[in-house]
Computed example of a mutant assay.
Amino acid sequence: MSIQTFGHEAFFMQLNSDIKSFGGRQRQYTHPSQTLSCEMTFSIYLPLQAEFGPVPVLYWLSGLTCTDQNFVTKAGAQVYAAEHGIAIVCPDTSPRGDSVPDDSDGGWDFGLGAGFYLNATQPPWSTNYQMYDYVIEELPTLIEQNFPIDSQRQAISGHSMGGHGALTIALKNTARFRSVSAFSPIVAPTQCPWGEKAFTHYLGGDRNDWLQYDACSLVAIATDQLPVLVDQGTGDDFLETQLKTELLVETAQAAKYPMQIRMQEGYDHSYFFIASFIGEHIAFHAEHLTD
Rank of each mutant, 00 (worst) to 15 (best):
residue 51 E to D: 06
residue 52 F to T: 10
residue 53 G to V: 02
residue 54 P to Y: 00
residue 56 P to W: 07
residue 56 P to Y: 01
residue 57 V to I: 11
residue 57 V to W: 00
residue 57 V to F: 01
residue 58 L to F: 00
residue 59 Y to A: 05
residue 59 Y to N: 04
residue 60 W to A: 03
residue 60 W to T: 01
residue 63 G to H: 00
residue 63 G to W: 00
residue 64 L to M: 08
residue 64 L to V: 14
residue 65 T to C: 01
residue 66 C to E: 14
residue 66 C to F: 08
residue 67 T to Y: 03
residue 67 T to S: 15
residue 67 T to E: 04
residue 67 T to A: 07
residue 69 Q to G: 04
residue 70 N to R: 07
residue 71 F to P: 08
residue 72 V to Q: 12
residue 74 K to F: 01
residue 74 K to E: 09
residue 74 K to R: 14
residue 74 K to M: 10
residue 74 K to Q: 14
residue 76 G to N: 10
residue 76 G to L: 11
residue 76 G to K: 12
residue 77 A to L: 12
residue 78 Q to Y: 04
residue 78 Q to L: 02
residue 78 Q to R: 11
residue 78 Q to N: 10
residue 78 Q to A: 13
residue 78 Q to F: 03
residue 80 Y to N: 07
residue 80 Y to T: 10
residue 83 E to S: 03
residue 83 E to I: 13
residue 86 I to R: 14
residue 86 I to K: 12
residue 86 I to H: 08
residue 87 A to L: 12
residue 88 I to D: 01
residue 89 V to S: 03
residue 89 V to P: 01
residue 91 P to Y: 06
residue 91 P to V: 04
residue 92 D to P: 01
residue 94 S to C: 05
residue 94 S to F: 06
residue 94 S to Y: 07
residue 95 P to F: 05
residue 95 P to R: 06
residue 96 R to Q: 14
residue 97 G to S: 08
residue 97 G to P: 12
residue 98 D to L: 11
residue 99 S to Y: 10
residue 100 V to D: 12
residue 100 V to N: 07
residue 100 V to P: 14
residue 101 P to R: 10
residue 101 P to M: 06
residue 101 P to K: 11
residue 102 D to N: 15
residue 102 D to K: 12
residue 102 D to H: 13
residue 103 D to Y: 06
residue 103 D to T: 11
residue 104 S to K: 14
residue 104 S to A: 13
residue 104 S to Q: 10
residue 104 S to L: 11
residue 105 D to Y: 14
residue 105 D to F: 15
residue 106 G to M: 11
residue 107 G to D: 14
residue 108 W to Y: 10
residue 109 D to Y: 13
residue 109 D to V: 02
residue 109 D to M: 04
residue 109 D to G: 11
residue 109 D to T: 11
residue 110 F to A: 11
residue 112 L to D: 01
residue 112 L to R: 13
residue 113 G to N: 05
residue 113 G to P: 02
residue 114 A to H: 02
residue 114 A to Y: 00
residue 115 G to F: 07
residue 115 G to T: 06
residue 116 F to T: 02
residue 117 Y to V: 08
residue 118 L to H: 07
residue 119 N to R: 11
residue 120 A to H: 08
residue 120 A to D: 03
residue 121 T to I: 10
residue 122 Q to E: 15
residue 122 Q to K: 15
residue 122 Q to L: 03
residue 123 P to Q: 10
residue 123 P to G: 00
